[in-house]
Design a protein around this nucleic acid. Structure first.
Lengths: 204, 204, 204, 204
DNA sequence: AATGAATGAGCTTTCATTCAT
DNA sequence: GATGAATGAAAGCTCATTCAT
């Protein structure tokens, strides 16, 4: 029982013999399962079933479960911008964080995409990817914080990253309430205070 | 002369019929493996081998892998106090957080014990346990914050919980640097700022 | 369909919870299948079915298919003596060869055991074993030939080994007739001539 | 300008619609793989890749893996002559055998072509082919031996065939040394002695 | 004629679990 | 209470084969 098809792909007969579409369907299904269940609990049979394609095509397109996982990881939108539109000041940062963390942004995943980033396949290469992605996020926070005046500026930036990760985990994976139900509006105030506390008050 | 074996690990061969010690040894081994590897990657054979006892005893004492996991979860020291000695004011809270998050506190686990709390066996009962433990932590933070004056006081308390979780994850599971290497001294300053930002300045 | 149970083991209920017997049964079944079908065509499912035991026990006792193969190879009686009773002169050698090659000696296998020695699992370690076994056989032939007077004495000994291998292959695997049907009596005359031709006439 | 491609390996990309060349390329690749790896370890994908043609063409031209195997078998040059130039007396036979067995004759295969003849696909039809080919060889040896005077003349001829098979196996598949390294010159003397021993001295 | 997408069946391996002793 | 043999189910992977274009 491939438990519930959560992808919402066409029933059948529609996409056929379309390599690109097949790849896409597999990636979407994989991302969803990996994000929700983690690496081990995700079976290739279920991913294939969700995508509505044959199991062997996973091998064809991604080589192995690891390959599929890496591809799914790479295709997962990064936490906040990283498409160049990272907020340029602290106030905007708090607002962006609030929006992103209150999910809804990528409701398609069922879970916050940063959870995908935290999934572990046991591959060291994946661990490195994880580190790089979060380090990059920290670097951007540092920039948005204005001058890295304080000697522990980088540490403070990474604490904000950690907060983001923690909120995503506690909301999606744990379901801690009221945090899990908070809207962007609920979050923006407290987050602004944290940002200010960590990065210093806005330059005025 | 059956000498006391407080570690729960038998010398060898001459394991005595000491049910309590066997249980303890199994729990320790299980907690370690579960924390470091997660539920799926932990095999009962390895746990039994680590504990130096027969595999079938896991069934006898804990019924199943799920049972062992729940017992291990219950036996894991909670994040911060929870033995009644939760810090009573914001300054003490920041300090305690710094100490706990900088690990070393429970080096025996190899990883921060809160990670055990985040491990998922797929059982809903476990998810509930997880929620309860973190909710309880949030409640205690709320208390330490003085009066729950603000309407979003509980949300703010849970954001602090989320930060704790996030830091543990980012330090242990991700290894993000410099955060992963930070000492209690490094952390206390920034954390004090976050606590103040979230809970308001100390009443002075 | 585990095609025909050729092992002749008790139907069921007899041997139970007897590790040694289980190992033995698996080895016998494996030897038979490997010898008759080769490495690739032999499935562990069929071996287990033939032995009347559970598939997973192969892992328990031999680690893997390769492990089972190596164990089966090691447990296969060597071509001619090698238990110390190698014929000490040329006449006896021809007679022994005739007897061994006319099979019936190890009818239990269904095929001549030297075929097992020729089976290839792709493992280099196995290839080495193969070489060693045949080299040892060549060495013994050399000894039985009296003094290694001629400079190509070793080559001639190995040609006799090759003849043995060839006869086994052509009889068992190919079924070339009349060679496949020849009795020891049929073979001894011609083989004596070959032995003399290769190793020189008996010292008389 | 479609240049002639006698190797059957296309330059690249511009494979012409030359059915005959495609067939030839496939057969060559198949023969090589089958000879070196055996039936099971040879994958059609690899054969197609070696031949530089599309996988599906194997089906078109040969119907199935079995079909390809049979065609490859049929296209394999027979052991010794069989093109009509079989040696007509014993001395020439020993010399021809030496040359053929010392390989180099069909170095293109990487292995002695008689190994292809021994490869097993599990098909009874193939077994029959195998038998026929070797029986034919035996018949020719019998002829070359002069009159079939002795009652066991046919058996003796087949023993010589078996020797040929054994030498090929022991040289190529086993790598037994010094036999594996012997040159035609090394072999001719001993083989002459075997031929004489088996078929009687040349009529002089 | 030729291509590449898609499929189904089967294999080894791995575990949690259960059963006798 | 404790041991180790035995089992069943499922997973990842591989490959010959078939189907559209």
């Amino acid at each position: 029982m491939p438990s519930d098809d959560v992808t919402g792909r066409p029933g059948d007969g529609t996409r056929r013999r379309d390599a690109a579409a097949t790849r896409r369907a597999l990636l979407l299904a994989a991302r969803t399962r990996f994000t929700q269940l983690g690496y081990d609990r995700t079976t290739l049979r279920d991913v294939a079933a969700d995508a509505g394609v044959n199991l062997a095509l996973i091998k064809r397109y991604f080589g192995s479960k690891e390959g599929l996982f890496k591809a799914a990881l790479a295709s997962t939108p990064r936490f906040l911008g990283s498409d160049g539109e990272f907020p340029r000041d602290r106030v905007a940062l708090a607002e962006a964080l609030s929006r992103q963390l209150a999910a809804g942004a990528w409701a398609e995943f069922g879970e916050h995409p940063v959870l995908m980033l935290l999934r572990d396949s046991g591959d060291e290469q994946v661990a490195q990817l994880r580190r790089q992605a979060l380090a990059e996020f920290g670097r951007q926070v540092l920039e948005a914080s204005g001058g890295s005046s304080a000697p522990d500026a980088r540490l403070r930036a990474e604490l904000l990253v950690a907060l983001g990760v923690g909120v995503a985990v506690v909301r999606s994976a744990v379901g801690l309430r009221p945090l899990a139900d908070a809207t962007p509006e609920d979050l923006v105030g407290p987050l602004r205070d944290v940002v200010e506390g960590l990065l210093g008050p806005p330059p005025d």
